[in-house]
Nucleic acid binder design. Sequence first.
DNA 1: CGGTCGGTTGAAAACAATCAACTTCTGTGG
DNA 2: CCACAGAAGTTGATTGTTTTCAACCGACCG
Lengths: 245, 245
Amino acid sequence: MSSTSNPMLKLIAEAGPICGCCDLEDGAFCAGLSDDGLRGLKAIRGNLRVDAQHTVFREGDPADSAYAVVTGTVKLSKLLSDGRRQVVGFLFPGDFFGFALGGTYAVSAEAVTPTALCRFSESRLEALLDRTPELERRLLRRMVMELSFAQEQMLLLGRMTAREKLAHFLLMLSRRAEARGDPQSPVAVPMSRLDMADYLGLTIETVSRTLTAMKKDGLIALPTSALVDLVNRDALRRIADGQAG
Amino acid sequence: MSSTSNPMLKLIAEAGPICGCCDLEDGAFCAGLSDDGLRGLKAIRGNLRVDAQHTVFREGDPADSAYAVVTGTVKLSKLLSDGRRQVVGFLFPGDFFGFALGGTYAVSAEAVTPTALCRFSESRLEALLDRTPELERRLLRRMVMELSFAQEQMLLLGRMTAREKLAHFLLMLSRRAEARGDPQSPVAVPMSRLDMADYLGLTIETVSRTLTAMKKDGLIALPTSALVDLVNRDALRRIADGQAG
DNA sequence: CGGTCGGTTGAAAACAATCAACTTCTGTGG
DNA sequence: CCACAGAAGTTGATTGTTTTCAACCGACCG
């Protein structure tokens, strides 16, 4: 973040209107903004580091800040009073979250890995939106995409089998890793089996068993429990799309 | 809609900045807009009637219009290639849908009952948003709420039992009926058992059986299959919140 | 009056959950 | 550096909720 020998920093300087607070480019929430929009964002930006498993904010808290992931992974989740949990999303570098327009947070946010965040004060962000139509339109577009992603997740949760859920999940991780410039085939799975289970509406045992079965079928390989090799991507895609058992 | 003896029309005239295209007030997408914002919306508004079970648009179609429900009920759904279906939302008078910012529709929209809609050309709406920050902010706020609702639905689909799902669903229908000024206790259930099942991630048989069981337990009464009396609302709420079996 | 459609009920099957044991990995302290 | 403890993950046996397959009921309509 401060070493001048970091090759990324040079790239950022050359690329022009990039935030400069992080190494992210095209995928990021702030990427591609005009100089003006970036200036505004930078002016209200704060930084934050969160240890693995620590909470950024809790469901029901007054929503006083929005965040962007710089490095690490964050999960958003909701709880039932008896402890049942649903993870409603995983966030990777470039992703934006916690935007509630002055209400309360609808979900809790916790770091999955050690994480660096950009923090934007809600009130200042809202004021900035008043002044920066470009930014507001971008946020609107982002919310449209988020909603569409949530609808796809509903299809997964309501209508897919365990195997289809896992295939879909692994391909999603791979696609997003690729978008950030990370390797897409031995794909990193930074979250625990419990987090995966709570995201897919399954139990840890079913996640584990299903992965083992997929390995046996030559669909994937598991070099470590946090690394999945997508051996037969086409077959995975067919399964994820509900065209095969 | 045109009779001068309709008491609603007088109310609308008195209330000032109400669209006038429909009988809706506070809950509506356009309610509470400034005269200016309303003028803009009215200028790009078209009307549309859709018969029950007919399609407004299909998943994957280019998104050339957004819509608001005036009367009737609309469902949004996604399909898997083998026919499995997930209903991702029901829309009632005042609700806004089909807003995709120039992309393609992520879901299909079908009328559940005979339905009247306001139609807004996507390109004109986007141009209007450029000119009307008030409207864009409202839309942004709406998307935030929609997303939060979608996240709650994920919790339901991933982690609730059939009985909890039904309790939650009936209370949601009741709450929204009340918000529109409709009776909240013998609550109207305009959609078929299949639509309910596809919304809750269940089968029609499970929906039917669960309703029967809830009737037997004195939680609800079923005057007709499309009308549900919420006999014991508190118990329903406890079940919906996951505090009781 | 027969036919179809939507809804309900019954019996059997299946997928995933639960309960439980065991293995592997990780980190810590001797 | 090794030994141990705890956490995370895997595997096995069994249970159970929901699905599937099937029959039946009642309403609406030609």
